[in-house]
Design a protein around this nucleic acid. Structure first.
Lengths: 205, 205
DNA sequence: CAACAAACATACATAAATGTATGTAAATGA
DNA sequence: TCATTTACATACATTTATGTATGTTTGTTG
């Protein structure tokens, strides 16, 4: 039996998990730094420090890997932190949402969104992952959002608007050379919060 | 001398102009339908119905062609229509701006933005064209916008916000399978206009 | 109406990505 | 412990894009 697990003896599940994680991480990095067009299997393997054989063993092809990378980013950056307490205000939600969308990793999501639209084959394989992603902004899917927005049509409409605004800002970051903040980012966020406060106040009245 | 210009005799300037136009048009189409990653010289030539030799004669390389495509879209969709009368209201500006950003051609711009960020070589060549594009949203560069916004910091901030919102919506369209409208597009536009009216009213007071 | 240059086509060499096939080391389980 | 499966590496064939070089047609100009 495997009585004494030698110092560097890892279980197969461990090896698989770690390898998949490394590959997914390398994929996201490549998407952020080099974009979809230059995110090839060789590039990902180079970053992960493994051979293409390893990649091919764990993922059927690039679409498969991208779907995994997307789901992973989705889980780590958007779902996991969302399992905390409810939002105190629209302002708090804006802070929370923007803290996520401003992450460099969100550029990877944008790249995949476009790639899925651009390449039908890829789109078919990625649709499930993408649809899960969309739920991040879905009011119905989140008890926190439902509680925050309530039944006011005005608040709900403002929420939709704020989502698009944040995505616009995120695209700005994604297209800025270093992924740095775009010029008027702070002003826009501040304005969004101000408007949020007013909408909330009026809805309460 | 070229006494009687035969029916199908075209001047060299004509031929060049038409060829460049065809290539640029094919490039934009390809960017919209297939994205940057699959917009190759062969694909562009296939669409334009010419050989790669022709392309290479008019454009040094793909970055050069992309810069031309970008400038052309810029000119046709954003600058040219902007030379009309001043905006009557923020609402009118929203209508005008959205009428442009909702065009499929704007997806080509987004693709180029990302490509320029993703590939340094391309970025260097495209920077001038991109910087010109940014002027579309620049208040200082447009007398119409200056007149519309005036000196109110609130109106100016709202304008910045609205720009990001519209870009967010445009990205939504760009990532939607048929380039079709995203779910809550109409609501967001309507809300933006409502807010615009309020901001204007308050700034006047 | 030459001589020349511009406009466009054809052909080939090179590079890079992908898929597949096969080989080896490590882990599992009877 | 040994047969078997899983994890990963190596090698090759194919495809596709690019750059470049050279050829042919069509306009321009003295």
């Amino acid at each position: 039996m495997t009585a004494k697990p030698a110092r560097n003896r890892r279980t197969q599940a461990d090896r698989s998990g770690e390898m998949r994680a490394r590959l997914v991480e390398a994929t996201v990095e490549s998407l952020v730094e080099r974009g979809y067009a230059r995110t090839t299997t060789v590039e990902v393997c180079r970053r992960a420090g493994v051979t293409r054989g390893a990649l091919h063993h764990h993922f059927a092809d690039l679409p498969d890997l991208l779907a995994a990378a997307m789901s992973d980013t989705y889980e780590r950056f958007f779902l996991a932190p969302a399992r905390t307490r409810p939002f105190a205000s629209l302002e708090a939600w804006i802070d929370d949402a923007w803290a996520r969308l401003r992450q460099p990793a969100f550029k990877a999501v944008i790249e995949v969104w476009l790639a899925a639209r651009n390449e039908p084959v890829l789109g078919r394989e990625l649709r499930p992952a993408i649809d899960r992603y969309k739920l991040v902004f879905s009011i119905e899917a989140s008890a926190r959002l439902k509680a925050l927005i309530g039944s006011s049509a005005e608040v709900q409409a403002f929420y939709r608007l704020a989502c698009e605004t944040l995505i616009g800002l995120a695209l700005g970051r994604a297209t800025t050379p270093g992924g740095r903040a775009v010029d008027h980012e702070a002003v826009v966020i501040a304005t969004l919060k101000t408007l949020g406060r007013r909408i909330t106040r009026e809805a309460a009245a």
